Amino acid sequence: MSLALALPDLDVVGSEIVRLPTPHPGKLFGKGKLQELGAKLHEADVELVLIDGPVSPVQQRNLEKEWKVKILDRTGLILEIFSDRARTREGVLQVEMAALSYQRTRLVRAWTHLERQRGGLGFVGGPGETQIEADRRAIDDQLTRLRRQLEKVVKTRELHRAARAKVPYPIVALVGYTNAGKSTLFNRMTGADVLAKDMLFATLDPTMRQIELPAVGKTPQQGGGRKVILSDTVGFISDLPTQLVAAFRATLEEVLAADLILHVRDISHDSTDEQARDVEQIMADLGVSDDTPQLEIWNKIDLLDEEDRDARRREAARNDTILTLSALTGEGFDTLVQAIDTGLDVPRRTETLTLAFSDGRKRAWLFDKGIVEAEEPGEDGWAITVTWTERQVAEFEKL
């Protein structure tokens, strides 16, 4: 239901949970349920039906033919929402690629009326096969074009990342389930005005700000604390379509470069534990290292009643990496700033490395990370003095 309400132009007239022990391969629902639902849709004059789950191309075609309505499954709906939200060039390209990848798998429903076009000698191949293949090639060509355009954007992002690495400011990334309150917290910490609404995927395009953390008791505008780069990312969601995971990987890779991750949770949500597991799974799939320090932020504590609020505070107090917070009212904000400052105090050591003149890639990596203190050429190569963390040591050893 929340996904449906995330599209502003939709008027949701009802919802129903249908239990399917065995989904029908052709029409998803059995004959009786198909007729029952069809009657309800006709009575309510429904034009669009949303199904919270996967629907095969054949099932979609048959249901649309049976009910005379447009069908969108979970993936299709999320793509519609993302398309409505994308604002930057990168966001638009990523959504277009995800949508084309999705459409490519569903060409069967668009061309089944072309009975006269058959593959082979007319004895094998389905109806419209030749046209489907031609259309698939057209989509592949378009995907290739979009991929090239996105590669340029990704290179620009990498250049920005390299430039940030030369400025010794740590990166703090906000991650979390969609609508957990990341953008509200981002705005409070930066004094920015990023779109923050009570709806899914309010933030689609990533936002980064170089800020000076407020000293305890001061406003974000007053600063006085450590300088960091704060990153607000697209919200995660359960069963995130594979097309979107692939398309938005370049954006989400900002999390991989983070020195500290703030996992923001809507602690007032009935499914907060399930949402947290979904976020952890997606971060694991992205390859976020277990060594990256993380803080879990239990946001929207103000929405709980007094008894639940006190219980959550006591529970969080037993774990140094969990904080309770209201990004809206500011409750717990000073404690968060202190925790970020402490979390970024990662032990570092200084040592001198000897690299052969042929190890240009490793030398470039050290400079990109902004950890080189001095460099001297010698007979056998470069003597490079670095100050780095254990995490950076591990990354360097993988090169």
Rank of each mutant, 00 (worst) to 15 (best):
F367Q: 00
I132P: 00
F186W: 05
G360M: 00
D239M: 04
S268K: 04
L37M: 14
V386G: 00
D285G: 09
E66V: 10
G176P: 04
T251D: 07
R309E: 12
P57M: 07
D52W: 04
G125P: 01
V13P: 01
E395T: 02
A317Y: 05
Q149D: 12
R349I: 12
F248G: 02
T219R: 13
T329F: 09
I81H: 03
V337T: 12
H24W: 04
D135S: 14
V372N: 03
R147K: 15
D73C: 10
A383F: 02
V346T: 15
V13M: 08
T190N: 05
Q142H: 11
D310M: 14
E373S: 03
F248D: 01
I237Q: 02
L5S: 14
D334S: 09
A364Q: 15
I297C: 08
R314K: 13
A284S: 13
G53F: 14
D52V: 11
T75K: 00
W388T: 10
K155N: 12
R361W: 04
D291C: 04
T203Q: 01
Q338R: 13
G181Y: 00
Q281H: 15
R157N: 04
D205N: 06
K40Y: 07
A247S: 09
D308E: 13
R147L: 10
R74H: 07
D273Y: 10
A44C: 05
Q60A: 15
R19I: 14
S271T: 13
L303M: 14
T190E: 02
I322C: 14
N187K: 10
S358Y: 03
A173Y: 01
L336E: 08
K227E: 09
S289P: 06
T251N: 12
L79N: 01
V49H: 01
D305V: 10
F201I: 06
R209D: 03
S56R: 05
T389Y: 00
I171C: 00
E307D: 15
D320S: 15
L114A: 09
I267H: 03
D290G: 11
S83C: 13
D310Y: 13
A327V: 11
S289K: 12
R106T: 09
T385C: 12
F123Q: 10
H160A: 13
G119R: 01
V228M: 08
R157T: 06
V153Q: 13
E306H: 10
F367H: 11
H42M: 05
P168M: 08
K68F: 08
R313L: 08
L41P: 01
L353K: 00
E254I: 02
L41M: 11
W388I: 08
A44F: 02
F123W: 03
L353R: 03
L195S: 14
R161Y: 02
L260C: 13
D135T: 10
R209A: 10
